[in-house]
Each structure stands twice: as structure tokens, then as C-alpha cells.
Amino acid sequence: MELNIEQHDNSEKSLLRLDLQGRLNTGTAPMLDTTLQQAIDGERQMVLLNMAQLEYISSAGLRVIFKAAKQMKAAGRSLAVSNRQPQVEKVFEILQALPDMAVFASDAELDDYLDAMQKKVTGDD
């Protein structure tokens, strides 16, 4: 089983959502890396990795995600993950790998966050 990535661009929320489906391992990590580099070159304020259908993740995959998170943060933007399945979450936890990332357990949580950010931005304006 390989990795499928679907991109959903939401310019209104300045959010690029990548739906990951399948296995993120040493074989498929380069593919995600390419996709993420394109996303970083884009203009969206937040890139979200939706892991609802991600069954497997290895350290090679995590490495790609970390790299992207670091780049996004340096650019003043953010990389977030959501909907991690238990086995994926476990790997994240073992490697204590969330320093530069936002994590959302569900889409609702994400929406709340985005709404809050939106209000903050318009409020400041």
C-alpha cells in the first residue's frame, strides 16, 4: 500500500490541507517532501496534514514533517497535523516530536482554531 496525497486549498482561510492516505514510510516520504516543499513555496498561512487515513508512519516520514514544520515556522507560518490515528500518535509521542507544530485532534478543533485566528486578525485591523 502506498501513499496518496490530496490537496485542498482554501484561500479564504489561507489554509492548504493535505489529506494523507496510506503509509508514510521511507519509500513514500520523498513524495510528501516534494509536496510539502511546493506548499511552503505557496502562500498559505497554514499547511495542515490531515492524517485521518494515514495508517503508518516511520521516522523517515516524521523527518520530512519536522523539516517542513521548521521551515514554515521560520517563515512565520505554521504546519499543523490533525486526526492522528492511535498508532501514528504513538510514534509521535515516543519521539516527543511536536516542538514546532500545532496538533488538532479533529476537524472541529481545527475550525475553532482558524475562527479564533481570523477574529484576532480582523480584530487587530
Binding site: S58, L62, R63, L95, A97, P99
Partner: peptide
């Protein structure tokens, strides 16, 4: 070392 920046992690060190 866990929780540190990924750039500093030695090769294979996470696995």
C-alpha cells in the same frame, strides 16, 4: 535526544 530539533538528531538516532 528526544524533543530536540530534528536537525540536530543523529542519523538513525530516532529509529
Amino acid at each position: 535526544p528526544l524533543g530536540a530539533s530534528i536537525d540536530d538528531a543523529a542519523i538513525g538516532g530516532l529509529g
